[in-house]
Design a protein around this nucleic acid. Structure first.
Lengths: 202, 202
DNA sequence: CCCTGCTATTGAACACTGTTTATTTGTGTT
DNA sequence: AACACAAATAAACAGTGTTCAATAGCAGGG
């Protein structure tokens, strides 16, 4: 049969993204296939290629959705007065999503584009948003630093937060006693930011 | 034909690991196959399963080799007097390997065991080595901290170093102007360690 | 009301993947 | 020279992403 037309193309796209999300959350980051996704929708595999250019494209759309959720949480953390408190809250939200939706979070950061295809702009925009928010808070928390210094600090800080969350989520630091990742984030932010602020005072 | 017996089983294992290494370095982390590896050796795919239990096992052996190279560089960095200088040198060696042998480095940290198979002890030992060296230097640099605090510091610090190197290697922080990763490592170590040391003095 | 045109959807094919197994082939020993 | 042993093969299996000609169903016009 063909042309049931029960759903618009846009609806189908959303359904496919959701089907992939379910599959990833249930079976893990690397346990899905085009045939499984199509099966969940009640369609044949080939049909997905009328919605997305390929599987990479579909994954990218799901990742964008995950990044939107991440950004929403991060924006939500900006309500504190103290900029250091905001950065801490942001880091904790980052960790919380990684813990609550581990597989989706892993998919965002472990997916590599095949055949060196360039990452589309609408995707890059979403990753930039995070860094910008960090820089905003650094501007408030360490006003003495100049633009360049803040860029370095933002990338250093968020690269570090990412590394701590990643090693936790991937179970790569369960060597000799487990330390709560919250403790590490606290340690990082307390010490790094206090030293940066002190340097600014001089 | 069968049984040419030109090489011992151990030789063949080493050759297979090297063939995979070449392939990964030339074609990238996710562009190799059992058939390509066997082809490079002049054998058929099935033969590899007499050397390793499966592809995961072969990858694990290559990763162990990469971790040995990493540990050798890290050990080599311990010759400085100042423990802070040692930690800096260690972080820079970590970055340098990631830059010089990007694909091999990526393979170590992006490879996930299929079917939730446990990571063998001989592999875990190699990842633990790094953390132990960091703790040794922290014991010298921040003697006031107790055992537990040092564990937190070591994991915080090395998780951060890893995150910075990872984002650099994966090109995930080329949003709005590139900052040299060396600068970030320096910023991280200077500020984090100085604050930790200051707290110890109190 | 039938028919035509359009298009959403299919199904089969393609070239590839990791893995298993019976079978063959070469070598060293009796 | 015949045998036993093991190394290596070839072929199969079930799976993968992707392409594309053929088809099935609906909408609009006569």
């Amino acid at each position: 049969m063909a042309r049931r037309n029960q759903h618009s193309k846009e609806e189908l796209r959303a359904m496919a993204i959701q089907a992939l999300a379910d599959l990833v959350e249930r079976e893990g980051v690397d346990n899905f296939s085009v045939r499984q996704i199509a099966g969940k929708l009640g369609y044949t595999p080939g049909m997905l290629y009328h919605l997305f250019v390929n599987l990479d494209d579909l994954i990218l759309h799901l990742n964008a959705q995950t990044l939107d959720a991440l950004n929403a949480r991060i924006d939500q953390a900006t309500h504190h007065d103290d900029p250091v408190a905001v950065l801490k809250a942001m880091a904790f939200e980052y960790l919380r999503l990684a813990q609550q939706h581990t597989a989706l979070w892993q998919l965002v950061f472990s997916h590599r584009m095949a055949n060196q295809a360039p990452v589309p702009d609408w995707y890059i925009d979403r990753t930039r948003h995070m860094f910008e928010q960090v820089e905003v808070q650094l501007k408030r928390g360490v006003p003495a630093a100049d633009e360049k210094q803040r860029q370095v600090m933002a990338r250093t800080l968020w690269g570090s937060v990412h590394g701590i969350c990643l090693l936790h989520v991937e179970n790569k630091l369960n060597v000799a006693g487990d330390i709560a990742p919250e403790m590490m984030l606290e340690s990082l932010l307390d010490h790094y930011l206090s030293s940066c602020a002190r340097e600014g005072e001089k």
